[in-house]
């Protein structure tokens, strides 16, 4: 079977898989951003009741593997009566895990905002919430966007693990096709190239655009 015939026959299945991967990726990214904001701000809080849970969360999720966390959510939570659909378990584990890494980026980004900005917001007697939302966070966002670009690629790579709990993503389809055709180079190679194209020509350019957009928005272009 030539490679063109292989693509003609199995191409649609790879694309179906890619679609599932893209949806898992987007949902996990949204969750990771929300988790990292909450936990990153929590870790910076002066209130120990907010700080310690955030520290514990970050250390737990950064200290063990994504695969272990995925299996814990998938196999262990149902024993306590919490059963999620496998699709939900997939992006939940990803978002919770990468959110912990993101929280550290949020913390670093906020700490890199010059002190003068905090003082200026104080002297304008802004409320703490307004100060954070209008003054600090936009500048922190600009600081942390470049490392977020790397983290988002890590997130995309992490989505391949949801195949191991039978979510039919790109990785899952590649394994299925490999199992029925035994054409390993073609099936895994095609999937590798699709992940690469997705990362290199969609995700990375989008993050670069976001950096430029935010720079302009803050008048620093």
């Amino acid at each position: 079977m030539s490679y063109t015939e292989f693509l003609a026959e199995y191409g649609p299945r790879f694309l179906d898989g890619l679609q599932v991967t893209a949806i898992q990726f987007l949902l996990a990214a949204v969750l990771a951003v929300m988790v990292s904001l909450v936990m990153g701000l929590g870790k910076l809080s002066s209130n120990p009741a907010l700080r310690w849970p955030a520290v514990a969360y970050i250390e737990f999720f950064r200290g063990s593997s994504l695969l272990v966390q995925l299996f814990l959510l998938f196999y262990v939570l149902p024993l306590f009566g919490l059963t999620f659909d496998k699709y939900v378990t997939g992006f939940l584990a990803l978002g919770l895990n990468l959110g912990a890494y993101g929280a550290e980026l949020v913390r670093g980004g906020i700490q890199a905002v010059p002190r003068g900005q905090w003082e200026a917001a104080y002297s304008l007697s802004m409320s703490p919430a307004k100060r954070m939302w209008r003054i600090i966070l936009p500048q922190a966002l600009l600081n942390m966007l470049p490392p977020w670009g790397n983290l988002i690629i890590e997130l995309l790579k992490g989505t391949a693990l949801v195949a191991l709990i039978a979510v039919p993503d790109l990785m899952f389809e590649a394994r299925q096709i490999n199992g029925s055709t035994f054409l390993s180079a073609q099936s895994f190679g095609t999937a590798l190239i699709m992940y690469f194209v997705f990362a290199r020509f969609i995700v990375t350019p989008f993050m670069r655009w976001l950096e430029r957009f935010m720079t302009r928005k803050l008048g620093r272009a």
């Binding site: 690629i153 995309l156 790579k157 992490g158 989505t159 391949a160 693990l161 195949a163 191991l164 990785m171 590649a174 394994r175 490999n178 035994f182 054409l183 390993s184 180079a185 895994f188 190679g189 999937a191 590798l192 992940y195 690469f196 990362a199 290199r200 990375t204």
Partner: peptide
Amino acid sequence: STPLVLQIFFVYYVGPQ
């Protein structure tokens, strides 16, 4: 920019082919 788990499968299965 590609998943490690896929690279592991690739190395393991492509050799025998």
